[in-house]
Amino acid sequence: MTSPTAASSHRLERSITRLGRAGLATVQAVADVRTWAPHVIPQMRRLGVDSVPIALFIAIFTGIVLSLLSKYIFTGAVPLYFVGALVGKTVMMELGPVLTGLVLAGRVGANIAAELGTMRVTEQVDALETLAYNPRSYLVVPRVLAGVFMFPVVTALAMGVGVAAGWVTAINLLDLSTLEFVKGLRLFYRFKDIWFGLLKAASFGAAVTLAGCVQGLGTRGGAEGVGRNTTRAVVLGCEAILVLDAFWALVLL
């Protein structure tokens, strides 16, 4: 029988050891540039470029809805040019990064988890290790780097398209002129609005891809395990996005 204090101490020691091992493995994986570098561009294509259409689709409708909603909210009380301010600020700081992140969490996180989970259950990961490849370096690092780079890229495009959609909607459906919309757009604009959104998107990219990789490489039990871990990866990615969103708002605003 061990005392509770000794058990807690043992658990803490084990956790710290695990953390140190993971850190060392990460450093080793990142340092192995020759292994992961050739795979970054293909992953950027798969995770980023291929996600642009769905991200822009979401952004267009977000811009339209925001424009109509702000008109509904401001009617009679606030000057209508504030539609531009609301659309711009909201798309750049919040809805652009978060909605894009959530969409990519579904698409990218599930993709990564399913791919790596299948590799795990079909022992392809073990084969890589047998061939002296570091699976983290070969599979995880390119995906995470691609996520960190491409999430802000896709988010930036979504921001532009979302604001443009709100602009077109305001001109055509809200009896608002371009000058009024742009006046509102510029009224509260700060450069921080953009980099704040892009920084959040980069962190979302890291979180979503890491969740996908962790859940994928941790898959056990065949196809059922792949499905379960894929679902977990998506849920975990979405939760991470919302937590990080609150964290950045707390830290940077």
Binding site: M150, A156, L157
Partner: peptide, 11 residues
């Protein structure tokens, strides 16, 4: 990838 990056940075 380069094209999307270019478009994004330009935007």
């Amino acid at each position: 990838v380069g094209l999307v990056l270019l478009l994004s940075v330009s935007a």
